[in-house]
């Protein structure tokens, strides 16, 4: 149940956006601001804790998660430019904190978490006007956005508002790109094969850029495209949307 349109929201940058895709973070903040929402970006953000959680190191994940939850005390929506980190907070924090003294706080926090495109479409109902030249793009759904969060076409809906953007779908849009956090380094052969297949699927669309909600998927596909010196870029959807819709 989406909340009524709020006047203020929190923004959680996530570690991958912080280190690898800062433009996506800035763009996400600006997309929210332009929709008339005040964005609060608390200091002290690090990581949602997912890497340790997925490896079974729950205490370590919880210790980090606890410090992060504490940064967002007000009852405001928390917006993330990542389906995976949002999935971790929304879907797995309640499990991670089950039986802990701060379980209720973790649950209350989890209930406020949104992925950016989900929030832009479902809550803010934004309208975008395309200012960019014609371009063909393709879209990779992150697994966690799709399955943990249950995203139902919000990113595609936003792209559909851009008049000069042609969306060429991947043949296997719902298939994992092979990132999987530590999976990519524990099982690099399988992960690499999946990433190569995803890159090949993207190249077959003849789009000039692959878009996604998730930094992990983007890093993964980008690494393969670069290794193959393929003529295709990757870009976070927030950065792409902002680039095309703001007057310079």
């Amino acid at each position: 149940m989406p909340p009524a349109r709020p006047s203020r929201v929190y923004f959680y940058g996530t570690c991958l956006v912080d280190l690898f895709f800062p433009e996506a973070g800035l763009a996400g903040i600006q997309l929210l601001q332009r929709a008339g929402v005040e964005v609060v970006f608390p200091e002290g953000q690090t990581c949602c804790g997912q890497p340790a959680y997925n490896c079974g190191y729950f205490e370590e994940a919880r210790a980090v998660a606890r410090t992060q939850i504490a940064l967002f005390p007000e009852d405001l929506p928390v917006i993330l430019p990542s389906g995976s980190c949002a999935g971790m907070m929304k879907h797995h924090y309640p499990d991670l904190f089950r039986g802990q003294p701060d379980e209720a706080a973790a649950r209350a926090f989890a209930a406020r978490v949104y992925e950016l495109t989900q929030f832009l479409v479902d809550v803010l109902d934004v309208r975008l006007a395309d200012l960019g030249p014609p371009v063909k793009v393709t879209w990779h759904s992150s697994c966690h956005a799709l399955r943990d969060l249950g995203l139902k076409g919000q990113p595609q809906a936003l792209l559909g508002q851009l008049a000069n953007v042609e969306l060429a779908p991947l043949a296997r849009e719902r298939e994992c790109c092979g990132f999987g956090g530590t999976f990519s380094v524990r099982h690099p052969e399988i992960s690499g094969t999946m990433a190569c297949d995803k890159a090949a699927d993207a190249l077959a669309t003849e789009a000039s850029v692959v878009l996604s909600t998730d930094g992990g998927c983007l890093l993964n596909v980008k690494g393969v495209l670069e290794a193959q010196t393929a003529p295709m870029r990757v870009q976070h959807i927030a950065e792409f949307l902002w680039e095309r819709t703001h007057a310079r």
């Binding site: 433009e23 690499g192 690494g223």
Partner: peptide, 29 residues
């Protein structure tokens, strides 16, 4: 080493999001 079996080394951005916000302030529209 495992990562780069099929990929290039991931390159961090020149400045992190947090550093930019701290130094330049929140972006404005």
């Amino acid at each position: 080493k495992a990562w780069t079996l099929s990929r290039t080394t991931p390159l961090p951005a020149p400045r992190s999001l947090q550093e930019r916000i701290r130094k330049e302030g929140m972006p404005r529209v």
